[in-house]
Amino acid sequence: MWDQEIRQMASSHAIMASGVFMATVVPAVLVPGFSVYGTHLLWLYSVAGSVAVVNITLFWLLGVSPPTKKHTLTYKVSKLVRSCLYLFLSCLFFHTVVVLYGAPLLETALETFSLAVLLTSLTTLRCVCVLGPNVQAWIRVFSRHGAMSVWDTSLQMVVGCSVVGAWLGAFPIPLDWDRPWQVWPVSCSLGAVIGYLTGLVVAPTWIHWHRKHLTYKSK
């Protein structure tokens, strides 16, 4: 039914996954002393950056985002500004949630905020790319039976997987193994990235598998 879109999605997801992979490998070659655990924040920002760049480029090229009715420059600028604002707010939101989950309030604020930035780049950025800076649409997609296209379903899955990955990533922290990846926020950010990659793989596969039964309400 949606063969072409699924193919598009699979290839774009492959590019995104390779983006994450490159973001890990390239600094390892270029930056001396780079390691995922040791210079964790560097890795984190490189992943976040690459995910952001790849996402924005791909979705711009694919043209998934809803068509705009007005083509004036001011409208576009305002949309851009609003996107940035939402991204920043989402960073703050994630930061607050992580603190509520028990992260220290002041001591590791930088690490916590970096995790929030990573989560934003994995989740909110994709929302902005797919749905535009439109909170109503976001709420619609994330409520039950709210998906209206294949891309909405994949968005649900990727976002869900990333968040659940970060959530699961917190579990090893209390274990007394004293491993480098138990240091805050390594396990959570690793969990988020692994969850994101899983989501990238799962979404096209699941949609392909269920393509016969998928029906979407039109707007």
Partner: peptide
């Protein structure tokens, strides 16, 4: 089953409770 989780059981409950609230 894990001794650390028994020692730090409160973390598990706080975590679950937060998720529940969300």
């Amino acid at each position: 089953a894990a001794s650390s989780f028994v020692e730090e059981e409160h973390q598990v409950w706080y975590f679950l409770l937060n998720t529940l609230c969300l």
